[in-house]
């Protein structure tokens, strides 16, 4: 029996209209469809501007989807992210879809450890237990213990990225979106992140990621989607703004 998909994109479309730049309209997706399965890794490839990050952000609902549907299995239901109400998006982000962005959005005055365990506390885990889990993960990502109680505001790019990753991996999600998670890491930490991703896959997580380094692509037995074909070059020309 083939496993059933957990996420299904059906005929999705996305364009950006820049009203203050002569109404330039850029079409990134048009009638794009794809299914994603539990326990599989999907690597998005294609040149810069092909829409790799855009696709992740549409799945996370940070970017609004103009046409088509993005259906996801959320607990026992099927939810269309493109049409879901805000309360449903909050629930999806709490339980079903995790997202590690390229850069950590640092909240001033919140310690690195508290930043990392926030997703666990959102699921009402006992704070003491959450801190224990957070410390173990920070240790694994080689963040020295004397930094755990500092705000990540002053951390280096690589350290912030690891805090971001710890936050993304601390709570298990059925779907995990990764936007260049290894971009600013050294070899040792890169290895740890690859291991974390493999563990998530073994846990049946559906991983969808953009990876900077082709060496990372080889690490995963998953399939690759090349988005280069998706862009419609002719549409990248400025065209008159529609109402």
């Amino acid at each position: 029996m083939t496993p059933h998909w957990i996420l299904s994109l059906d005929g999705i479309g996305k364009d950006f209209v820049f009203h203050h730049q002569q109404g330039t309209r850029i079409v990134v997706f048009e009638q794009f469809s794809h299914q994603f399965y539990p326990g599989s890794a999907t690597i998005l490839t294609g040149p810069s501007g092909a829409g790799k990050s855009t696709l992740l952000r549409m799945i996370y609902a940070t970017y609004r989807t103009e046409s088509g549907s993005i259906r996801v299995r959320h607990r026992d239901d099927l939810v269309d992210i493109a049409a879901a109400r805000p309360a449903m998006i909050y629930a999806l982000r709490k339980h079903t879809i995790g997202y590690v962005s390229q850069f950590l959005r640092v909240v001033p005055r919140v310690s690195a450890l508290d930043t990392v365990i926030e997703p666990l506390l959102a699921r009402n885990m006992d704070p003491e237990q959450a801190r224990k889990k957070g410390k173990a993960l920070l240790e694994r990502l080689n963040i020295p213990s004397n930094m755990w109680h500092l705000s990540a505001t002053t951390f280096s790019g690589g350290e912030q990225q690891r805090i971001n990753l710890a936050r993304g991996f601390i709570a298990p999600f059925p779907i995990l979106l990764l936007d260049e998670p290894t971009a600013s890491l050294d070899l040792k930490n890169r290895r740890t992140v690859i291991d974390l991703i493999k563990e998530a896959l073994a846990d049946n997580t559906c991983v969808i990621g953009v990876f900077h380094d082709p060496a990372d692509h080889r690490e995963f037995a998953g399939h690759t989607i090349d988005l280069a074909d998706m862009i419609h070059q002719e549409m990248k020309q400025p065209c008159p703004e529609k109402d």
């Binding site: 950006f16 209209v17 952000r57 609902a61 940070t62 970017y63 609004r64 805000p86 998006i89």
Partner: peptide, 10 residues
């Protein structure tokens, strides 16, 4: 959503 308005303003 806040991130929609700030990251994908229409």
């Amino acid at each position: 959503l806040s991130d929609q308005i700030l990251d994908d303003p229409r």
